[in-house]
Simulated scan of single mutants.
Amino acid sequence: SIGNSLDLSPVEFLNYFNQDDYTKIIGLYIENLRSINQGRQFMKAVKDCNLNRKPVILWRAGYGEATKKAILSHTGGLAGNNEMWKAVGKQTGSCIVSNSNELAALASAFNLTRLPETRSVGVIGIGGGSTIEAIDILEKYNLKIPNLTEKTVQKMQRFVPDVNTNVTNPIDLGGSGIQPHTYYRTILALDKDPNISSIMFIKDPERFGGFQDLLEEIGFKGTNLNRDFIRYVSKAKGVSTKPMYCVMLKINEGF
């Protein structure tokens, strides 16, 4: 956030951070651009940063009419319309967020793993609902859900049952996904697939918790599915060549 930009503009800050060796991610709160010329310079600067593999996260304010009036009195500039800023994000490859929490979450995600080479995502989940919801959101942001190679599908068919499961992208492991090592083997299979650049897996700790109680009732005491899941995912991360993202549906007590 740089106030009303009396002396330095967002463009100058972007160009500086693009050249700074210590800067890996750029987050920018922006209310408006002062002129058409500055807008063109801004578009170029943002695109240059993204092409330099320094992701730019734009927190754009001014969605409501009251906010736009406040921005006019604050900086003396117009906030612009929502469609224009969506176009900025699409044309420059930057991420548009609407609040500080989204900016912090995205910056953390970029910081914790390397950037994928393309927009192609492999999705793993337990149950159709969560995977369908995931790909809806991914496609909304112009990410791709490509088909897996036949070799990958055949590899997964060796350890994923063919009842109530799906080994095409998105992958639904069904009941077999309760076993942490099945997640591990699935991640490794996607890691070898040339059609996939990043891997997203969906985790529901409470679903594991129910099976945990069942295992103890039938004599498998000392087994901790959530702990084993973390261990197997950490093991997969150590050998995977592609960035991995875990989506937690819920956090239950003790996880």
Rank of each mutant, 00 (worst) to 15 (best):
L14Q: 13
N15H: 09
F17D: 03
F17Y: 15
N18M: 05
N18L: 01
Q19M: 03
Q19L: 03
D21T: 11
T23I: 12
K24V: 05
K24Q: 13
K24G: 03
I26P: 10
G27R: 02
G27C: 08
G27Q: 03
G27W: 04
E31H: 07
N32S: 11
N32M: 00
N32H: 02
L33D: 01
L33V: 13
S35E: 12
N37S: 13
G39D: 14
M43S: 03
M43H: 08
K44C: 00
V46S: 04
K47M: 09
K47H: 12
D48T: 13
C49P: 10
C49W: 01
N50A: 01
N50S: 05
L51P: 00
N52E: 11
N52V: 05
N52M: 04
R53C: 03
K54Q: 08
P55T: 15
P55W: 09
I57Q: 04
L58F: 07
A61S: 15
A61P: 01
G62K: 00
Y63E: 15
T67S: 15
T67N: 15
K69W: 03
L72I: 02
L72Y: 06
H74K: 08
T75N: 12
T75S: 14
G80P: 02
W85K: 07
W85T: 08
W85P: 05
V88P: 01
V88G: 02
Q91G: 00
T92A: 06
G93A: 05
G93H: 09
G93V: 07
N99D: 14
N101A: 08
E102D: 13
E102Q: 15
L103C: 13
L103D: 08
A104H: 05
